[in-house]
Amino acid sequence: MLEVKNLSKYFGIKKAVDDVSFKVEDGHILGVLGKNGAGKSTIFRMILNILEPDEGEVLYDGKKIDYSMSDKIGYLPEVGSLIDSYTVYEQCMYYGKMKSMKSEDIKNNMFELLEQFGIVEYANMKIKELSKGNKQKIQFIISLLHNPELLILDEPFSGLDPVSVEYFKRIILELKNQGKTIIFSSHIMSQVEMLCEEVLIIDNGKVVLNCNLEEIKQEYASKTLDITGKIADSTLKQIAIFGKIEKKENNRYLVNLANKERIGDVFRLLYTSDITKFSVLNVSLNDIFLDKVGTAYEE
């Protein structure tokens, strides 16, 4: 279990990370969502012990993270971390050795993973000959090379085509089922939404939202009604007692209820009206973000 407690980091006078705390259980995926420069990479670097936090600490299995644990951690950096003049094999060798692996194991694991991705032919190609997407795949392979317990993926999907994204997703879910702890970051909301159970939204170095995705969706979803139809003003006034009404075009109304037990009451009030649609809205993460932060999430 990874535990981050009150983490803060200053760059000069700017507080890049401001009192961030969260937990990730074994076998869970945490998606970290935030704009560019929100502080995601800085948090990851502190977890990885590259940067020292100014305040707070990072615990893994109850112990403070240091270099003795680095062999258990897999890392996919946001910026390409491959050396152009190396071949894929040399690169794997170099980084594998950095994780105290034996040459034989590195070779075996590398080929296994290359086969999984279907890019065995790249083993002896130089990094500079690879496309951006393929480089990303190699980086991903390197982060998995030593079979880590904790996997930290910084923007794993950047530069990938949709097919590869699906592929990555499948592998990440597989790893999750193997009981690995996975943290990954993205600035694209849909990617986080489709992959993880828990989500951490960061803005300006601060945690805006930290929750279980399903739970919060349940919570939000059950509170918003989407109604289309001709509703008399008097009825609207009555509904307004239960929640805020937002009028949209074409006789469409969004009703944000204060309490989800009022759905039935609203339904009963509408029986005289000419309703074409009545549904409980399935809220997207964006709506939640909007509600929590006040402004819409922009990529």
């Binding site: 990885l48 680095s70 890392y75 950096p77 491959l82």
Partner: peptide, 15 residues
């Protein structure tokens, strides 16, 4: 070279 290729980021997580 290691800085510009950013491989330093990976290496410093291990050593």
């Amino acid at each position: 070279q290691e800085k510009m290729s950013k491989s330093i980021e990976y290496i410093l997580t291990s050593i």
